[in-house]
Amino acid sequence: MRPLSALTIAAGLLFLTIEAGAEPTVAPGYRLETISTPGAAYSGLSRDGEDLLVTDLASGRLYRRGPDGKLAAFGPAFPYGLDVIGDPTGPYRVVRVGDDLVVAQGWTPVNSDEGPLDHALVAFDGTGKLRVISRDFWNPFDFIVAGGIYYVIDSARNSVERVQANGRKDTMMTFRRMGEATTALQNLSPTEFAEEKSYEVDAVPTGIGLRDERLHIALFGGFPFLAGAGKIVSIPEAGGASMPRVDVEGLNAPVSIAVDSDGDLLVLEHGTYDQKEGFHKGSGRLLRLDKMTGRRTVILGGLTRPVSVLVWDERRLVVSELGGNLHFLTRETAH
């Protein structure tokens, strides 16, 4: 199967139009500021000193937002376009690593010839000189860096890859296909999913985070993106043959995760899905999962196709949406 976009790989179908959704809703004790850029498709977020780094899949450019609040393009332009389903592909994420900035670059756009930067982990220095760390991916949607090691999510291969600074790579985990309950599938489409048939979907890993020496991975789940079918699983950072541990279930297409200053897990849900309408406008949300109790709190709701969540500091969070929105969430009181 040809890899598609980070969110649709192995899913087989996705509605293509990115539309504005309802106004976001904020939990008590939080203040929200939103900036919007018509035509942009914001994806990856990271912090570089006092600057916010953002990737834009609609232009292939990287943006830097300084303390003055202005977004300015910087660095090389990366390949971008639409995949065969019609979703944007390009630089999914950029992260500061020492003197370099490292980009996870997506699959080759459907109307382009494959280039040397496609489906790759790419570094560039202050002069803009490019260096490919590895192209041995299909769709490297997200990554983190810990102890000089890159931990890369390959959504197309349903795997977590460990990459050395010199490009040497080994697969830490390849996720099995997930079985879905026949009753749930019949409710979705009684004619397509007969009672006597079983149904499996690809796990489609997306976001990754590190907590307590374990890598936590969001499993988005493949088509038909059943409500509550998403999971968060974890594996030891050191690797090994152990099976992934299921930490959280019942999620709606989790796409990004992060760990806040209290050790709580933040989970960004892409939303709920309908075969006729696609992902429902306003169905995405940001959850906080208490580390001690597991209690879930919705701290930002009403999102449409959100992609990334970034912990800026102990009070502030940033969330991106494919519709060109950046949401800045500030906690005004203790939670």
Rank of each mutant, 00 (worst) to 15 (best):
P116V: 02
Y30I: 09
D51K: 03
Y199V: 03
K291W: 08
S36R: 13
A20Y: 03
F328D: 02
Y199R: 05
V307T: 15
M178E: 15
T17P: 03
A123I: 11
I149C: 01
I153V: 15
D170Q: 09
R135K: 12
V204A: 13
T330D: 10
G147Y: 09
G282Q: 09
L226T: 03
F124Q: 07
Q275S: 00
S46F: 03
I18A: 13
G69C: 07
G29N: 12
R61H: 10
G222K: 15
A73G: 12
F175E: 11
P91F: 13
R285N: 13
R168E: 12
I208M: 13
E161N: 14
T8Q: 12
K197T: 03
A72D: 09
W107Y: 13
K276V: 01
P140A: 05
G282D: 08
T330H: 06
L13H: 05
G12T: 08
K231P: 01
R285L: 15
P38L: 06
F137G: 11
S134N: 12
L317S: 07
V163D: 14
P88A: 12
A156H: 10
M172N: 06
G324F: 07
R47Y: 00
G263E: 11
A227I: 01
H327M: 06
R315M: 04
R295E: 15
R61G: 11
T272N: 00
S43G: 08
A238L: 02
A229F: 05
T171S: 10
R305V: 09
L210V: 09
D274S: 01
P116C: 02
T25N: 01
R157M: 14
P67H: 01
T34Y: 09
V248C: 00
P109S: 11
N111F: 13
P306K: 12
T89E: 04
R93I: 10
S155D: 09
G39S: 13
F175P: 12
G115T: 04
P76M: 01
L13F: 09
M173Q: 14
I144Y: 03
G126D: 09
V267F: 04
G147T: 10
D170I: 01
E33Q: 14
T182N: 00
Y80N: 14
G282A: 08
A11R: 08
P24M: 06
A73I: 13
G126N: 08
L329F: 05
D125Q: 04
H280Y: 02
W107P: 15
T171Q: 08
H280N: 01
D264H: 10
S59D: 14
T293M: 11
Y80G: 06
G239N: 05
A334N: 11
A27N: 02
T25P: 00
A27T: 02
T333E: 14
R285Y: 12
I232R: 04
S256H: 07
L300P: 05
T127D: 13
A41F: 12
R214K: 12
Y199H: 13
A41K: 15
V311W: 00
G221K: 15
H216A: 07
V160K: 12
R157H: 14
V259Y: 00
K129I: 00
G98A: 07
I299E: 07
S308Y: 09
L287Q: 07
Q186T: 00
P67A: 10
A20E: 14
E277D: 08
Q164H: 09
T89I: 05
T333P: 04
D170T: 11
I133P: 07
